[in-house]
Design a protein around this nucleic acid. Structure first.
Lengths: 336, 336
DNA sequence: CTGTTAGCGCTTTCAT
DNA sequence: ATGAAAGCGCTAACAG
């Protein structure tokens, strides 16, 4: 009733353990006869043999497992990154273990205590530069996604053309006639959001102005933040922003709720844009004009990069393109 | 520059490998002198020693790792289940590896090919009974969450009082005066949805009627399904349903969109209820009246159950209670 | 109290 | 074409 080992298979097939290893490892052509190979495979199937990974890893010194560190598992973006990474990994016989860093972008606790697996490498997504020290200490090959390329430690980076995305947003809104913007920014500071803020300022045409409000990445908090910013006390009807540019779809959803509470119609009275293009973007009403991020591709590239690094190869790639998806939450500003 | 082993630590501390193992394993009190223990710990810290998990696993024959199989990672419900399971696991020195079953509730492909880790046990959430054969073949201890308790194979079950939740929904709506219901059900058949359907029928008071429409778990699909069901062709104003009971918040969000397209106001013309209480429930407008499911608790109980099973203990627990959260998507039916 | 020893299951030379 | 043997890093008996 105990699990069969390669020795058991060897005995059953009447061969040696070494032969079993060769056949099942797929490196027998020219070293083991066709007939013996068949015998071994039959015996293995018969016994329901599965190689013991721990032993294999011990022997090989590698685990064929990568750790994907994400700031929040409940966020669909990271779920998609995982999906992409896991697909590429699987194609190369690798596995991916998820480690949701407990405190958002704060310093990651030792992931080995949680994801107890020996690891070959780490992929970290959207983490603050120093949030990975606990992992970096392990001196494992590290690939960073959507993170500061200047941050040391990482052997490769996969980034998105976030600045270009923000440019597209601004161009779209200014094209509609908007000039007074509110930037509903993420309260959690991380490189990716700093880039968006900088790009927003840079993209602004002459005569356009922007005010910034910060909020945690949470629908209710975003609603509160925007209500406070646009509320009655701030009610200079004349210079009220006509468009809210959000760092994220979640913030945008909150912004829409706030608008409704303040008696403003979206998009007639107030335009709202997001970032990410999560399922949420088309679940709300009106649907969000937002910047689509190819999350799965990010994961795929991340894993590809890690495999290259593990292989001793260099790896670089241009930023992944992002594209504005225009839906119902943006329109020309209200007339005077 | 190569990774230090316990032998290196032993040499550095001037003791034997066995002593290192005892000290670092925390089972030295009474077997190793206080002073030596200090020496060992210092040496280990100095060298940045980390035990090799593969070797430990090989030796112990267990990996302290559980696999959590979920039908969809992008669903926040499962993300929360994972969070709960991972917390309990961490408290016991266990890790949790996620395996998103590729084809929804279909037969799970061999997870070992993807999550390449040796496993001590499997926790499967909301999967069809036969979807786990590939795993069951491995004869690993299995705990099923939100799944048919009659299904064989599982050593323990964690379930939710879904039927009671559906009763609460019906009681709430009938209390408001509704009598004609539409059940927007999940197209993917799984035990959890069958239970909801049965409970709905059972809970219906005399004089109440229900019609069932199925849709994939997707906002757009749900919108389409409901539009088709309530659309102009079906426009017998007299016997139109006044309330839509959805199997899931995602379906409910789609239902709200459909209503809006059909010119029906929610909740004045049409009440809508969901299930799950995801972030989505409060992101949409109006916010959803829905049944809150304690997802993290489900994960916690699942892991607790698995630990008990691995420990040779029996484990049973009553269904976890669920509670209706009344928000803005339900109201009395429109007058005649 | 501490060291010696054996062996977990696998892959890989090196002989045959 | 196949087998014998060594050893990956760790832990648990068993000696001392």
């Amino acid at each position: 009733m105990t699990r069969p080992t390669s020795r058991d298979v060897a005995r059953a097939a009447g061969v040696s353990q070494a032969t079993v290893s060769l056949v099942l490892g797929g490196k027998w052509p020219g070293r083991v006869s066709e007939r013996t190979a068949g015998l071994v495979r039959d015996a293995a199937a018969e016994l329901g043999y599965r190689p013991n990974l721990a032993a294999r890893n011990l022997r090989l010194g590698s685990t064929r497992t990568a750790l994907l560190v994400v700031p929040a598992l409940t966020n669909e973006f990271f779920a998609r990154v995982y999906t992409g990474a896991a697909r590429v990994a699987a194609e190369h016989g690798f596995g991916v273990v998820l480690y949701p860093s407990p405190d958002g972008t704060g310093p990651a606790r030792d992931p080995f205590a949680s994801a107890r697996a020996a690891l070959d490498g780490v992929i970290a997504s959207s983490m603050a530069a120093d949030a990975l020290e606990a992992i970096g200490g392990a001196a494992l090959p590290l690939v960073m996604l959507d993170s500061d390329p200047a941050a040391g430690g990482a052997r490769a980076h996969v980034n998105l053309a976030m600045a270009d995305g923000m440019h597209q947003v601004v161009a779209h809104l200014e094209g509609l006639g908007h000039r007074r913007f509110l930037h509903l920014a993420s309260a959690v500071r991380s490189w990716t959001f700093d880039v968006r803020a900088a790009a927003l300022t840079a993209a602004l045409g002459p005569g356009s102005t922007v005010r910034t409000v910060r909020s945690p990445l949470d629908v209710q908090a975003a609603r509160g933040a925007l209500e406070a910013a646009l509320g009655p006390a701030e009610g200079h009807r004349g210079d009220r922003p006509t468009a809210v540019i959000c760092d994220d779809d979640i913030l945008a959803a909150g912004a829409c709720k706030a608008a409704r509470r303040l008696g403003l119609r979206v998009p007639e009275d107030l335009s709202v844009t997001g970032f990410d293009d999560l399922a949420l973007a088309t679940a709300v009403e009106p649907e969000l004009t937002t910047v689509h991020l190819p999350a799965e591709q990010v994961g795929e590239h991340g894993m590809t990069a890690l495999l290259a690094v593990l292989d001793g190869r260099e790896w670089t790639a241009p930023d992944l393109p992002v594209g504005l998806v225009v839906r119902g939450s943006t329109a020309p500003p209200p007339g005077p």
